[in-house]
Design a binder for these strands. Sequence first.
DNA 1: TACTATTTAATTTTT
DNA 2: TTAAATAGTA
Length: 721
Amino acid sequence: MDVTPIIDPLNEAQREAVTAPQEPVLVVAGAGSGKTRVLVHRIAWLVEVEGVSPHGILAVTFTNKAAAEMRGRVEELLDIPVGNLWVGTFHGLAHRLLRRHAEAAGLPQTFQILDSQDQLRLVKRVIRDMELDDSTWAPREVQWFINGQKDEGRRPDHIDTRNDQTRAMMVSIYRNYQHMCDQNGLVDFAELLLRAHELWLNNPDILRQYQQRFRHLLVDEFQDTNSVQYAWLRVLAGKEGILFAVGDDDQSIYRWRGARVENMFQLKQAFPAMREIKLEQNYRSTSTILNAANAIIANNHDRLGKNLWTDGNDGEPIRLYRAYNDRDEAEFVVARIEEWVAQGNLRAEAAVLYRSNAQSRVLEEMLLAKQIPYRVYGGLRFFERAEIKDALAYLRLLENRADDTSFERVVNLPTRGIGAKTVSQLREYAAANAQPLWDAARSGAGGALSSRATTAVQRFLLLLEQLDKDTTDLDLGDTVDHVLQHSGLLEHHRKDRGEQAETRVENLEELVNAAQSYEPDAEDELPPLAAFLSHAALEAGEGQAEKWEDCVQLMTLHSAKGLEFPLVFIAGLEEGLFPHKRSLNDPGGLEEERRLCYVGITRAMQQLYMSHAEQRRMHGIDNYAQVSRFVAELPTDCIEEIRPSIRVSRPAFGKGAGFRHTIAAEPPGDVRLGQRVRHGKFGEGVVLNYEGAGAHARVQVNFETAGTKWLVMSYANLELM
DNA sequence: TACTATTTAATTTTT
DNA sequence: TTAAATAGTA
């Protein structure tokens, strides 16, 4: 057998990982060190050389994209279809297990998946039903709480609420929410994982079956696993399972979403035989860029520790630009991109990275003004669009009449005279009788509805029954088409004028296409419609399905993870923005920001620009910030500061012009960050922040006794100390 | 029921 | 500033 294609393209460390004996392995893979290659080749090695059947291998990733790529590359390398190899996301695999063992998992066969939008709606409803004030119990925070608990594997009963009223209330919302999900056969993302874990724990025979099958567990991006995912893996591995984990602790940027880097550190205890291999040779960036990345991340503690290197050349220095304001910064970035393109490079090779989405705005305006095509990552995905979700709600009701979320979504869409009043009557009746809205509607809420409402509701029920009947013999594409035509949804959007309405109609037509060309995963053994609905929830689709055009890439640092670009800009390196002020409270948060910076830097292949603005307009008011601490952490010999060319006058935007601007560029009065001040009423304190200029300038002061306050400079009469 | 005015809050988002 | 959600009005 010829193993050259499998081991030849590998460097020494990669080869050690790929050809390691069948024992637990942890691969600490730095950015750009070829971790996907190692995973793919490891699978090939196991199959081709070690004689392991693909049937006995499970490979887990976080994103559908990564899963698809891995599957594709394995098939390419092995040159044979590997149908019974399980490759998928944690959520996808958990979903598959729950479908296969729905009963053992305590779920109805027809359970539906809630995406985070659906989940938020449901949380809102629960809060309302409990007659709680939703400003005290902000639905987003409650959702956050519930998911946080689930990510840690905690059910309501596991949570200690002694001496904590707030927590106790959170838990009872959680409990009611879960009750609602169970009643309606709904499963949110976190629940997929938690249930799958509980499936192992409660059904030893099922667990054993999978333990015997999957002797090899390969996990990508291990630093991003949360507690439940980790527990799920450990239980599945048992005593015999062989774990091959790949990850980079320095690229852990999802702690705030439940990811636990510690899982990576604990592996050695959990699997004493664990062999640790570091991939430090980088094939992406110049050594200047790598030096900068290494220097930044060296400021973090709690690392496994590694140093990226390359045998490539130094490349160009990292350019640092200090802008007057955000527009100046954008202008600078766009000018550099124009140069890049003028040198014959592709726009698509340039990426602008930023900390928060709002920053894209100025950049977009500038790109628009210069007529440079661009693409902003993020935003609504195809299956998350309102009109698509409406259509899916009809389809979900066909699958599962007990899906109240979907019921409420479309019961009056298009409008058919079922107003808020009627729905709330139905809801009340359904709650009182512990039955789905569908059943409540069938009984006309026990006769409580007005005759007009009753007819309207009956018409809706009949419509759905009719849709169900008419689509029994249709294939998936025709079913979706039929539902769109006969539910009145398409008509509803067609009669709407305007560009947006047109897009909506196009999207709905696209949905039919998507259904027509959808190929269910053979392993999932689901009826086509059910499979399609799950697919829609688990894989939200592309952001903008635009046709390919050579455009500049704009995205947050988070969404840049895993990507690479010849030319990279990191914009907005300012204290309070990056690192973000909301992560400064705890040291862990700051370290995560630093890792984010590390991720950003390591995206760059050839050229890296970093910039910050003295003045930045946020939420409509001008803010002043100091340069990010991360800039100071860069080695000075990697950096070349770019001085703005001398201009006759400083750029002043809007009214006011030069004079005003001169004042604005300085902190109000003589106040500086960290300055001690005294106030007549509040006593002594320290200046934390300031914003605005002239008469509107405000400072934030942390007083020793009075706490933190925002004060208007012209009134506060602060005494400098 | 649909449109308009007002209020409120604004970090990151693989599934 | 702005987007979204809510409240109020025709």
